[in-house]
């Protein structure tokens, strides 16, 4: 019988492991490519962004302190759950971007595979980018990468593959993230948040805001408790310039927007952009 009325989903924000509405009480209409109403997304405010930073900071110690093996498994678990909910994601991609069924399948495939690829890096990156340094003296000297801290991520338009491609490299190394989701296609981001919430990602490790870049990005770029910012999703050069200038106030690590083929296998650079090298010395003696 087709008399049954759908139960629709309310798309909310993802902050500190919870799914609140914007504190501002605002939302915006998300339309499909043909201009038809899909849903109302929360229109996050600057205050929501600040709350997200607080949540990310609170989660940082625990997340960065986990073993790499554990972080690898959590990111891998996101891939597992995403795979299991691929039908929903494919439908959302088709709805929001208007892509074909096969294209949507490709994107989900790639997103899952990318998560798997990054998950494996968690316990290998230190071996690849760290060093034992042969100093000229009786000292043990070891350089290892450590996460920079709280990273603001301005996600690209691509709602799923784009988001996964910028988010996974940030968190797999132990950073926590405040993500401004694709302004145009925010709904899959919130579905991904639901996936993460059930994939053992600790609350606050990933925080997802839906809303406008113009409203959210400047506050994050200027926030003194944010350690780095990925400007990938900023395609307005003037905005990118002002964000990078604001980021200078506390010397955030900045990844500038640049053309990138999201279909290709990534390099290490998205991970190393938000890593610090720590070098520890100790004498060798009896």
């Amino acid at each position: 019988m087709s008399n049954r009325i759908d139960v629709r989903k309310t798309y909310k924000l993802y902050i500190g492991g919870a799914f609140p509405r914007s504190e501002s009480g605002r939302s915006y209409e998300v339309l499909d490519p043909k201009g038809r109403f899909l849903a109302n997304a929360s229109l996050a405010s600057r205050k929501d962004a600040r709350d997200a930073v607080v949540a990310a900071r609170k989660a940082f110690g625990g997340w960065s302190g986990r073993t790499s093996y554990n972080r690898a498994q959590v990111v891998y678990r996101i891939a597992e759950v995403l795979e299991s909910r691929r039908a929903q994601l494919e439908q959302e991609l088709r709805d929001s971007e208007g892509v074909s069924a096969s294209k949507a399948r490709d994107y989900v495939d790639l997103a899952v595979d990318r998560l798997v690829w990054y998950a494996g890096w968690a316990d290998k990156l230190t071996q690849v980018v760290g060093n034992a340094n042969p100093v000229a003296g009786p000292f043990f000297n070891l350089s290892t990468p450590e996460p920079s801290g709280v990273i603001a991520v301005i996600a690209p338009k691509g709602p799923l593959l784009g988001l996964v491609s910028v988010l996974a490299p940030v968190i797999v190394t132990g950073n926590t993230a405040v993500v401004v989701a694709s302004e145009e296609h925010p709904l899959p981001a919130i579905t991904l948040a639901e996936i993460m919430a059930t994939a053992d990602v600790p609350g606050g490790v990933v925080n997802i805001l839906t809303g406008t870049r113009a409203e959210l990005a400047p506050g994050l770029a200027a926030h003194m408790d944010v350690n780095g910012i990925d400007l990938t999703g900023i395609d307005d050069p003037a905005l990118a310039l002002s964000l990078e200038q604001a980021a200078a106030d506390n010397l955030k690590r900045v990844r500038r927007p640049a053309a990138e083929d999201l279909l290709a296998t990534p390099s290490l650079s998205r991970m190393t952009a938000f890593l610090e090298t720590k070098t520890v010395w100790h004498p060798i003696g009896v």
Binding site: N131, N133, P134, V135, A136, G137, F139, N141, S143, E146, S148, G149, N227, N250, L251, R253, E276, T277, K278, T279, V280, W281, H282, P283
Partner: peptide
């Protein structure tokens, strides 16, 4: 960026040096 354990102010060409946070990048 540099932690000296049971020593301090040691430098070597093979050993990376630089900061976290507002100490630079």
């Amino acid at each position: 960026g540099v932690v000296w354990a049971n020593t301090f102010n040691k430098f070597d060409p093979t050993s990376p040096f630089g900061g976290f946070k507002e100490s630079g990048y």
